[in-house]
Design a protein around this nucleic acid. Structure first.
Lengths: 346, 346
DNA sequence: CTGAAAGCGCTTACAG
DNA sequence: CTGAAAGCGCTTACAG
């Protein structure tokens, strides 16, 4: 029943009484083929249900039309949006996305990358698992395949010269603006909630938070910064940590949106009322932030646009390997919504 | 700077003074190669940074280790979880995922599928865009590549005999159980909220809802069922539709979880209190349902497990094309949480 | 245990 | 404008 073998250029050529080379020309719309020949060949392809084998063509041409995309956490809408943006841009440029999900595990990340590398991608877009080490990544990716790292920088054990392009958010400035926003609303006891300190984006966001508090003449204690895994569930589960200290915060700068949403839900569970008696601000602007209860004030990073941008940057490098390596830091803007009320008590 | 060409089996063979065939044997761990030869070859691969070119191997062997995964809406956590599950299972079996996102557009879906087909996937897992037509899909996928359709059945224009495997949820029974749950809590004026009636899963869920209401002796009006796009934002935006009718519902069976979460947020915006004066029940059990405010009662479909299952089913068929086509319908279980209070007034 | 040859489905010079 | 030949990086019989 299942047709025994796939239709190839040879089948079409034979049926039309021309050579493979001619069919190949038609395939790529070359003007070298006579218009009648072209018509005939196209009709025959249609008739036999010919499907181009791009893998074979790529092998011969020593090129690749695939890009590997390895994501640390596909269940975070920020990264799901990013992935959708990458895929959108790649398919517009007739590339195909090889997907891998590391689930924040650097050993899975290594496996996944190694497996994708065997498919000879034109490049790799990596949103690294926490604490990914650059030597590790270099070992598996090698130096001939362009790499674009998104969002977090890699840990460089020995300040090696492993080079890659980088696309990230202006975490420090963004977090400073977020913190200043709470300060401007009269908040003084402000926590930094969520994230792991060994992720570069978290460290940078903490610095921005500290910048703002110092700027306001507020002395900060280490204990004002609370670590959680960067997930909604963990943020939800650890909400009480805010109340296990000397003072009670009236607001929190959160590591990202899913953490902020989880925290607000955790606070509600504890009988608090975020948006009324507590101010929470996020980072990312995932689609859901706009429709939260209350809607979430956040720093807009437009993850889908970042995905498109990442794909574009990678393809530029793939087209021109001698380009100097770029490190692009995208500014983020405050998007004010209802989750950040004025401080009731100062 | 960039190394000029890639390292091949030939390079390794030459460096070791053996033939390509021997290196190929070592590569696949064949016992035919002498242990000393094997060691030497492996060391040389390490030294030169050899990367296996699976595309070339697949071409020669006329096999494929890639599977195309086309998703209708990657920003819905249900599908993001599903995709993560597919990828998890595929990479465990040493397959690679070719990702495509159709954004619920059947024309994009066609383009994406056509582009992925050129990479000669071993099979296709398709979570179809709304109102996808089977003739359309068959045209682009052909009859030689195994297809697994997830979640929604395809529209069959002429009852064609295009065959594919199907994995779906027991929508009708699940929705009946959901509705009966609200009935058992004393609700009588129950709406069906969200989804488009031209999606098969929505039609089936509506039937289950009607089954339950009929079983309770309640006469249902068409106007009790409200259409919205199956997204959080749309569900949020149309919440007032519940109050533009003869009676005021005390609860709603929702098309899925993102719709239920959006509705609850919309109701809150209108000054209602879901979980107190309104009962909303979802479908899917996305991770976020557990930590909603209130936590969402829903029908558990375990999307990540469905992804693993879909990958498994597809690989089974790819291994055995003569298998009869299967249509697997997974039961879903009620997961009770706080979004469904007893009816205050009956 | 190893080598020489053919071939997967394409494209690319090179003749004519 | 078209054809014959070589080759991308592998694997697979087939000899030895």
């Amino acid at each position: 029943m299942e047709a025994p073998r796939r239709i190839t250029l040879n089948d079409i050529a034979r049926a039309c009484g021309v050579s493979r080379a001619t069919v190949s020309l038609v395939l790529r719309g070359s003007p070298l083929a006579h218009v009648d020949t072209r018509r005939q060949v196209q009709a025959e392809m249609q008739r036999q249900g010919y499907v181009y084998n791009r893998a074979a063509a790529n092998l011969r041409q020593r090129v690749s039309t695939a890009v590997a995309l390895v994501i640390n956490d596909l269940s975070n809408p920020f990264f799901a949006e990013f992935a959708a943006g990458v895929d959108e841009e790649l398919s517009k440029k007739n590339y195909v996305t090889l997907l891998g999900n590391s689930n924040e595990s650097s050993s899975r990340q290594r496996q996944v990358l190694a497996s994708l590398m065997e498919h000879n991608p034109a490049g790799v877009i990596l949103s690294p698992a926490e604490a990914s080490d650059s030597a590790d990544i270099e070992f598996v990716i090698g130096r001939r395949t362009p790499l674009l790292v998104f969002n977090r920088v890699l840990v460089e054990p020995d300040a090696l010269s492993f080079e890659y392009d980088f696309l990230g958010l202006d975490n420090r400035a963004g977090s400073r603006v977020a913190t200043e926003h709470l300060l401007s609303l009269g908040h003084r006891r402000i926590a930094f909630y969520g994230g792991h300190a060994d992720s570069s984006s978290c460290r940078e966001r903490r610095l921005g938070y500290l910048d703002a508090l110092k700027g306001a003449g507020i002395t900060v204690d280490e204990s004002w910064m609370i670590e959680t895994a960067p997930t909604r569930l963990e943020a939800y589960a650890h909400a009480e940590a805010l109340y296990e200290r000397d003072f009670v915060p009236t607001g929190a700068v959160c590591y990202n949106d899913v953490v902020a949403l989880g925290l607000m839900q955790g606070l509600t569970r504890l009988g608090r009322h975020p948006g009324t008696d507590f101010a929470a601000i996020g980072f990312d602007n995932i689609p859901e932030a706009a429709v939260g209860v209350p809607p979430l004030t956040t720093m807009n990073a437009d993850p889908r646009a970042r995905g498109r941008q990442a794909a574009e940057l990678l393809l530029q490098r793939a087209a021109n390997p001698s380009l100097p390596h770029r490190s692009i830091v995208v500014p983020v803007q405050l998007t004010h919504r209802d989750s950040t009320p004025r401080a009731l008590v100062v």
